[in-house]
Design a protein around this nucleic acid. Structure first.
Length: 261
DNA sequence: AACGGAACCTGAAAGC
DNA sequence: TGCTTTCAGGTTCCGT
């Protein structure tokens, strides 16, 4: 799924494709995945697109359009006869569509005044790419309690936007075991973890910046990650075999040699 | 409070 | 070849 970098790229694309354009037609092809009356967007102009965590926020004056991509969602331009289209916005002479095979994605059409208190937005933690997100903030939000580090980092209330891949990659980069209890993460590890999160997010943002995001596992996409999805392959740092295990239903990958703490 | 597991969905790949 | 199982980058709900 779309983690923070993919959602940020979707935001930039939607901005480029639709900002300043008038919405002539809206098609909710899978009405069960949309809350609110999508047709009320017709006749309005797309002003700008924002991102908060993994949520996209389209600004249409008095109305806002929220989109969460779920596990397999992506926004594409001029979809023509692509399969799995769930939602289409006709903006001027072009069309943008949400393509989402698994249908975990959701959308909401709400009033401008309801955005801040929306349940998917109101409780999100800080944005890791904001200038004031530092190692101390990370430690304060994450470094307590008996939860596994991985679980806490995935908690959108602790830090917004991190997903399974970002957490696995950040722990690998920082040489910290993802199942370490939060309260046991040594003080010295927080700056490393902070740097690792930023490095990972920036790297993915750079390498995936394109009109269409190729998720891992799609035809022709090579695994661009150091550790994620590399069970039994050699660790790029020490050549030990990467291990995979499952915690709360999610795959975890780690190097048993590098990530001792 | 906090954790694991199931549920929500569907398609692709691997296994037999 | 075809059927079955496993797995997938998210989130919520439910039981312990």
């Amino acid at each position: 799924m779309p983690e923070l970098p993919e959602v940020e790229i979707a935001r930039r694309n939607l901005e480029r494709w639709t900002a300043g354009r008038r919405i002539t037609r809206v098609e909710a092809l899978d009405p069960t995945r949309v809350d609110g009356d999508a047709s009320t967007l017709e006749g309005r102009t797309a002003l700008r697109w924002e991102r908060r965590g993994k949520m996209l926020i389209g600004r249409f004056g008095r109305l806002a359009f929220l989109s969460h991509l779920g596990m397999t969602g992506k926004w594409v331009v001029d979809p023509e006869d692509r399969p799995w289209q769930r939602f289409r916005l006709h903006a001027g002479d072009r069309c943008v569509a949400l393509v989402d095979p698994r249908r975990f994605g959701r959308a909401w059409v709400i009033g401008e005044a309801e955005v801040a208190a929306h349940p998917r937005l109101a409780h999100l933690g800080p944005e890791p790419l904001d200038a004031d997100f530092d190692a101390q903030t990370l430690r304060r939000r994450v470094g307590f309690g008996r939860s596994a580090l991985k679980s806490r980092l995935l908690d959108q209330r602790a830090v917004a936007g991190l997903g399974n891949i970002a957490v696995i990659e950040a722990c690998w980069r920082a040489c910290v075991h993802p199942h370490l209890r939060c309260q046991d993460v040594p003080h010295s590890a927080w700056p490393r973890l902070h740097r690792a999160i930023l490095d990972h997010l920036r790297q993915v943002l750079t390498q995936e910046d394109a009109p269409e995001i190729a998720y891992l596992g799609e035809v022709g996409a090579a695994n661009p990650f150091h550790c994620y999805g590399r069970a039994s392959a050699p660790c790029p740092r020490c050549a030990t075999s990467i291990e995979r295990l499952v915690l709360s239903g999610r795959s975890t990958f780690f190097c048993p040699t590098c990530q001792l703490i």
